[in-house]
Computed example of a mutant assay.
Amino acid sequence: MATIEELETLRWDLRRDCVDIIMAGKGGHIGGDMSVIDALMVLYARHLNIAPSRVDDPDRDRFVLSKGHAMEAYYAVLCHEGYLDLDDVKARFSQFGSPYIGHPNNKLPGIEMNSGSLGHGLPVAVGMALAARMDKRPTRVYTIMGDGELAEGSVWEGAMSGGNYALDNLCALVDRNRLQISGCTEDVMKQDSQEERWASFGWNVLSIPGNDVAAIDEALGLASRTKGKPTVIILNTVKGYGSPIMEDKAGWHHHLPNAEEYARIVADFAARKEARHA
């Protein structure tokens, strides 16, 4: 199992891999990739009971990327964990006939569910968690959503069911970077406390700095030890986290960097990685 210190360095390598995938495929949701990649990394490195050799194990944990457009970040993590080959992903991402498309494809090893139509991940995760309980399996189920996605009514139907069935083997994470393609999510939810809303549905609520590796790790540990109710982790993140030219800018939701922007981004990642060893 990777240590937190190792992950503090790895996060910048994964970001570089993610951006390289986007550049190779000439497109991708770079801003949301950068906000969610830390949570994906910690989840796979330290908490999910799965492995490339056990993709069909009925007792494995399940993960659903409901925020399906953050696929480039997911590719970077899956490649590092040994499910996919990074060079192959870079060579074929977003090419005609390629399995490496811009949203999860469950024909690829390690991917449980096709997603991208927002609002589906949590309801499916509820079904997976309920099935695991009925089958008396040790499976835990995780899903990651974007905060813009929370405008979908199906999310709250899933939240109601998860709380009603007291699914303590279920953990939802919300990438709350407060931006979506059309602008600020707070324009819709500015008078609404996400923490209070989830609690009202019977969930254990953890609200943390969502690009803090140690905080993510601690919250996931607390979620696994919580009994009698599902847990939601509100990840208070920064869209485009890692390079000032992207950070907290809605215009980077789906922006392909030019050569100058790419050079600045990778230099920023390298500088932050180097600062860990200074």
Rank of each mutant, 00 (worst) to 15 (best):
D59E: 12
R60H: 10
D61C: 09
D61M: 05
R62G: 05
F63K: 01
V64D: 04
L65W: 12
S66P: 06
S66G: 14
S66V: 07
S66C: 04
K67P: 09
K67W: 12
H69Q: 05
A70F: 08
A70I: 08
A70P: 05
E72R: 14
E72L: 14
A73T: 08
A73P: 07
Y74S: 12
Y74H: 15
A76N: 10
V77P: 00
L78G: 06
L78S: 09
H80S: 11
H80A: 13
E81A: 10
E81T: 10
E81P: 06
E81V: 09
G82E: 04
G82W: 02
G82V: 00
G82M: 02
Y83I: 03
D85Q: 12
L86V: 11
D87I: 01
D87C: 02
D88A: 08
K90Q: 04
A91M: 02
R92Q: 15
R92V: 04
F93E: 01
F93M: 11
F93C: 10
F93D: 07
Q95E: 14
Q95D: 13
F96R: 11
F96G: 02
F96Y: 13
F96A: 13
S98A: 08
S98P: 06
P99Q: 06
P99I: 05
Y100L: 06
I101E: 10
I101S: 10
G102H: 00
G102E: 07
G102D: 07
